[in-house]
Write a protein that binds this DNA or RNA. Structure first.
Length: 575
DNA sequence: GCCGTTTTCGGCCCGACTGTTTTCAGTCG
């Protein structure tokens, strides 16, 4: 059982305790422990063996004992008892907006509801509105929320949300009286999936802005409509939320709207320690005197902190780093000078090699690796050893045409086959400039099996890079159930780079694993997996995932000058 | 349940909005 599985168990305990009506701080303690386990950068088994579990932040005696029990036995009696009391399926009710722990428990106790399907049935039969404190309006809203939830059960991909969000932002900025407006929330933090679109605006007179917002023609349903905050559901099924405050309060508002929640809580705790109270409206002392902030820099400065980039605001140590002057120098788009994973029309790419190279050059890249699929991926017209040898001639010809404006590398994206074998022989691999290995098939295999396949690839001396390691497709397909401890350890041992695939459908490695990998000293690549020139413009998404992983340019091999990159590739070759 | 340059006990983030109420609980971000 690894740290992520443990984190999920403690999240579940937290949700069950919440429904059970335990004092709120007890369930918060379990949630903090879960977050902390997820961010842990140490060997859990070793901590346990050395009796040092309580050194994990948010883990005290009681939770340490539970971690130990789970590590030793794979079970937790405490959880089993809890689940006997509260049906575990009740937790899914909490995913419906407007249904929190109190209502979930009420529906269970008074209407016998134990699952989402039963809640929907009860709402349709009008049973909910007969319960105390629940009226017909609440019942109707719950039903509408369940229907919306089943239509769009997954979070939106970041790119879709950004495109929609930017359109709204342009509209908002065009309204009379709006002096400033920004995308906030998880879009501003570049999370890979987005729940809803959060907007903030500065206006001396919020009311007409709110009126315009809730009356926008795309609005299907108004959920909230207040003076400072409104939220709506669009015809497209997307939720949009808008906060407005006067310009002199815009700094605290933008901070508040950006989150994350845990980050905001930390700053409010810091305020409290100083006898102050922080909200989206400002900073207030005990006598009620207000201090206002028009921008975020000033707000952080009031706490003797440098401005913290939104991508880092996840309460994963950014406050400690900021306090000690140790915030990372984050990578930027212009630092990327190489694309090391791309496809031509030799396999499933759209264009010939020369055209792809010209497109890369136009985008300021200095190195492009052509890495078409290998033979077993028939649907993508994967390359055999013979076709790879033939492709080399075309790459040489393109290089001659391009001169030294951009360096072309011949590589391959080799299948890690479902049977555990690699798709090309070592002699063929030795003839290539760069070898990428990746999983496309057999992603649903059991953990041991799929991990073993991945380790075979990492241990092959010709393999330089693992592309989109988990194989996930956001919102469509979960990644493989890899043993990440083993994968990261092997990548470290063999000096194999791991990719942050920049394609918005993948964003894989995710920021959590990329952060762990980089901390271990594993080289990271940011590639778009371009099948066309337009794909190369998606590099930004990879860069922001890297920023969320606290990466600087030095840790990313695509920023290295060509000579250094070539030396790294050469030195990885077995002599 | 956790935690301590105010504390080993008594705290633990804050305000907006809604619905069902007659002064507030629940939910959300």
């Amino acid at each position: 059982m690894d740290q992520y599985q443990l984190a999920e168990i403690f999240d579940r305990i937290s949700a069950l305790l919440e429904i059970k009506g335990e004092v709120v701080y007890k369930r918060l303690a379990y949630k903090r422990a879960a977050d902390s386990l997820r961010d842990l950068n140490a060997d859990l088994q070793q901590l346990h063996a050395e009796n040092r579990l309580e050194e994990i932040p948010g883990v005290g005696k009681a939770i340490a004992e539970k971690i130990a029990e789970l590590l030793d036995t794979g079970h937790l009696r405490f959880l089993e008892k809890l689940e006997a009391e509260i049906p575990p399926s009740l937790v899914e009710l909490l995913s419906i907006p407007e249904v929190g722990p109190k209502k979930a428990l009420l529906f269970y106790k008074e209407a016998g509801v134990t699952s989402l399907a039963e809640l929907e049935a009860a709402a349709r039969e009008g049973k909910l509105s007969q319960l105390p404190g629940i009226g017909p309006r609440t019942e109707a809203r719950i039903l509408a929320n369940i229907e919306a939830h089943t239509r769009r059960s997954v979070r939106m991909p970041l790119r879709e949300a950004r495109i929609a969000g930017e359109r709204w932002l342009r509209w908002l900025r065009g309204l009379p009286g709006v002096q400033q407006a920004d995308l906030a929330g998880s879009i501003r933090r570049w999370r890979s999936t987005i729940g809803d679109i959060d907007l903030v605006a500065a206006s001396a007179d919020p009311k007409p802005v709110m009126e315009a917002f809730v009356n926008h023609p795309e609005v299907k349903l108004v959920n909230d409509h207040g003076e400072y905050k409104s939220s709506v559901l669009l015809n497209s099924g997307i939720s949009v939320q808008l906060w407005v405050q006067p310009p002199e309060r815009y700094g605290t508002l933008l901070f508040h709207g950006t989150g994350s929640k845990d980050h905001n809580v930390r700053l409010r705790e810091l305020a409290q320690q100083r006898g102050l109270s922080l909200s989206e409206r400002g900073l207030v002392d005990k006598e009620g005197r207000e201090q206002l902030f028009a921008d975020e820099e000033q707000l952080y400065k009031a706490f003797d902190l440098p401005w913290i980039p939104p991508e880092l605001r996840e309460n994963r140590g950014e406050f400690e780093a900021a306090r000690n002057g140790r915030l990372p120098e984050l990578i930027r788009l212009e630092d990327l000078t190489a694309e090391l994973h791309s496809h031509s029309n030799w396999s499933d790419g759209s264009l010939p090699i020369l055209k792809m190279a010209q497109a890369a050059r136009e985008r300021g890249l200095r190195v492009l690796a052509i890495t078409d699929h290998s033979q077993s991926l028939g649907v993508a017209n994967g390359l055999s050893p013979e076709r790879l040898r033939a492709q080399r001639k075309e790459i040489d010809a393109a290089q001659a045409e391009l001169g030294d404006s951009i360096l072309l590398l011949q590589g391959v994206e080799m299948e890690i086959r479902a049977d555990g074998m690699l798709d090309l022989d070592d002699d063929t691999l030795a003839g290539l400039d760069i070898v990428i290995a990746s999983l496309h098939v057999g992603l649903r295999q059991p953990r041991e099996e799929v991990t073993r396949r991945m380790l075979t690839a990492i241990r092959n001396p010709h393999v330089d890079l693992i592309a989109h390691p988990s194989g996930r497709l956001l919102g469509r397909r979960d990644g493989a159930d890899l043993d990440w401890d083993a994968v990261l350890a092997a990548a470290k041992e063999h000096g194999v780079a791991l990719e942050i695939n920049a394609h918005p459908d993948r964003l894989d490695l995710d920021d959590i694993y990329a952060h762990r990998a980089a901390e271990m000293g594993i080289p990271i690549a940011i590639n778009t997996d371009a099948h066309s020139p337009a794909d190369m413009d998606l590099r930004e998404y990879g860069v922001y995932i890297a920023r969320r992983a606290w990466l600087g340019p030095a840790q990313v091999i695509n920023t290295w000058p060509a000579e250094r990159l070539l030396r790294w590739l050469r030195e990885r070759q077995p002599s």
